[in-house]
């Protein structure tokens, strides 16, 4: 009985001290990690999507709220004078957790400009091709916003990467989420940009 009790007490104490310590470290590093992700993940994706914009999307970024989540919006001025926005959505259910997808949308034409994978923890060489090999994400280029962005296997219009269906599906989920998010937020985006 005594032994049982000491086992429970020691393990519980260890776990709670560990939990408290990690919470402290997490909140201490949170801001810096966010900055680093912006610099090393979002900025390259935005630069590649908005390669020919005439403004600085990173500097002009603003936050909008949809429900409880805060969304960073990066506005871009295209060379032909039309406006576009880029923002990131998370695709649930990748092989190694959620997959971040930066989606750029042309506001005047209601058309996708393109999409790039940002944060992910997919298998190197398989799922990671979603980010490294632009062939897969370039399928999103110039799609109209009401297109069905699911995989062809799910009656949509996107070809999955061979050997990485789970990853492909998570990416399409992020794209579909971006469609609904855009429809919800468009009035507010227009207001902010004017």
């Amino acid at each position: 009985m005594r032994e049982m009790l000491s086992m429970i007490v020691v393990l519980t104490l260890l776990a709670s001290v560990s939990g408290g310590l990690l919470a402290a470290v997490k909140s201490g590093t949170e801001l810096r990690i966010e900055e680093q992700i912006l610099k090393f993940q979002k900025a390259p994706a935005i630069e590649s999507l908005f390669s020919d914009v005439t403004n600085d999307p990173l500097k002009e970024r603003f936050n909008l709220e949809s429900g409880e989540t805060k969304i960073q919006i990066f506005p871009g001025k295209l060379p032909d004078g039309s406006m576009a926005v880029a923002f990131e959505t998370l695709g649930k259910g990748g092989y190694g957790g959620d997959i971040g997808l930066m989606v750029a949308i042309n506001l005047d034409k209601d058309q996708l400009l393109g999409a790039r994978v940002t944060t992910h923890a997919e298998t190197p060489g398989l799922g990671s091709r979603a980010k490294d090999d632009l062939k897969f994400v370039s399928q999103f280029n110039d799609k109209p916003l009401d297109a069905n962005l699911a995989l062809k296997a799910d009656n949509g219009s996107i070809d999955a990467m061979s050997g990485a269906t789970v990853t492909s599906r998570a990416v399409t989920r992020a794209a579909i989420q971006a469609q609904t998010l855009y429809n919800d937020l468009k009035p507010e985006i227009m207001k902010q940009i004017q």
Binding site: V25, K26, T29, R32, I33, Q36, I37, K39, F40
Partner: peptide
């Protein structure tokens, strides 16, 4: 966490 914050 520390690596993520300082050596991303």
């Amino acid at each position: 966490l520390v690596m993520q914050a300082f050596t991303y």
